[in-house]
């Protein structure tokens, strides 16, 4: 009887925890959307920010900066992480090297973003200044790539590991080379997982502030190239709050950011579901 009671209590507790998490999420989303949505208009999305926190302007250049920085981070991190995952999972045996690699990725994932930012500042902004242009989209994107990399490496590896060994054996057994097996059977089967990893990484990059703070420069003008300094949305929110205490614009930008993240998450979820179903022949 006591065991039964304890079980009921445990389930209740877990259920409570789940509900609490959901509630917190809803409260945050609702709070920001309620405060931010009224500000969003075509004008808001397509006009550049004014100087010195001038009211009635938009956030166009910050959206462009976010897309540019995130895109660049993905562009760098995707081939590295997917390639790395393939190498680790398909070409190395379970040995020390593999452990070291995996551990390294884990450590990288665990480093506080401000420290990554500091590294980015010292390495890309200062040391490689002649190439990156100092504070720039390029420096920011490359720094963010370090944050995307471990997440998507880890998830890609899991996705590859989840591909049944029988499929590899089936392909090799038909006289395909290892590389043919990877490109024609393993990768297509693992694709949903790999994409999910990249999207999670992109989510992390879009939302990142600390690593950006020290590397992109925060210039509000519209960028014309990757070596221009820029100010992505997150940094913009931080700046207008700390410098001008402009909560209205901050809420508006935050709402745009959140809607963008939600949209990306749900769209990829939907597409991946369809793809997986197609793979399973449903």
């Amino acid at each position: 009887m006591a065991a039964k009671l304890r079980e009921t209590a445990a389930i209740g507790l877990l259920w409570g925890a789940g509900i609490a998490t959901l509630l917190i999420l809803i409260v945050i989303l609702a709070y920001i959307l309620v405060n931010g949505l009224p500000l969003i208009s075509w004008h808001f999305l397509t006009t550049n920010p004014g100087v010195r926190g001038q009211q009635g302007t938009g956030i166009y250049s910050t959206i462009v900066a976010t897309v540019a920085v995130t895109g660049l981070a993905l562009l760098v991190a995707a081939p590295l992480s997917v390639g790395g995952a393939i190498y680790l999972n398909e070409y190395t045996k379970e040995n020390l090297l593999r452990k070291v690699f995996r551990q390294a990725a884990e450590v990288l994932a665990g480093i506080p973003s401000i420290i990554i930012g500091l590294f980015g500042f010292l390495f890309f902004v200062i040391y490689l200044q002649p190439y990156t242009g100092g504070w720039s989209v390029l420096s920011g994107g490359l720094t963010l790539a370090f944050m995307v990399l471990p997440i998507s490496l880890r998830i890609s590896e899991e996705a590859l590991k989840a591909v049944p060994g029988e499929l590899r054996e089936g392909s090799l057994g038909l006289g395909a080379t290892k590389w043919q097996s990877i490109t024609t059977v393993v990768m297509p089967t693992a694709l949903p997982g790999i994409i999910t990893g990249l999207i999670l990484g992109a989510g992390r990059a879009i939302g990142e502030t600390a690593a950006i703070l020290l590397t992109v420069g925060g210039a509000l003008g519209l960028i014309h190239g990757v070596r221009d300094p820029a100010c992505p949305m997150t940094l913009y929110i931080y700046n207008i709050l700390t410098e001008y205490n402009d909560t209205t614009t901050a809420y508006g930008t935050a709402a745009v950011l959140i809607i963008a993240i939600l949209a990306i998450t749900f769209t990829t979820d939907y597409l991946m579901n369809r793809y997986t179903k197609k793979l399973k022949g449903l």
Binding site: P164, E166, E169, G170, G173, L279
Partner: peptide, 12 residues
């Protein structure tokens, strides 16, 4: 060539 215990058609 080899045929395995569990049928392993490719997801194609």
């Amino acid at each position: 060539g080899m045929v395995f215990q569990k049928p392993n058609p490719f997801p194609k």
